[in-house]
């Protein structure tokens, strides 16, 4: 089972790897976006806390 033949996909390489590649890319970006959003949210909360000195007096939004 040589790899070059495998990747060639009997001529359909572009289509098969095109769809899987894009899928992995899309879901990879989604994971990065979610982690990034978490980091940003936490950073903003800390900034807010340092600015106002105390967080946790108001009620939930």
């Amino acid at each position: 089972m040589n790899w070059s033949e495998f990747f060639f996909m009997n001529g359909y390489a572009f289509y098969v790897w095109g769809s899987y590649g894009v899928a992995v890319l899309v879901f990879g970006i989604e994971v990065l976006m979610v982690r990034h959003r978490r980091k940003i949210t936490l950073r903003d909360l800390r900034l807010m806390r340092d600015e106002t000195g105390e967080v946790g007096t108001g009620d939930a939004a």
Binding site: D44, L45, E54, V55, G56, T57, G58, D59, A60, A61
Partner: peptide
Amino acid sequence: ILERERNTQWVSE
């Protein structure tokens, strides 16, 4: 949840 509950006590702790 963090964004919505940023003013609450439990978030600060």
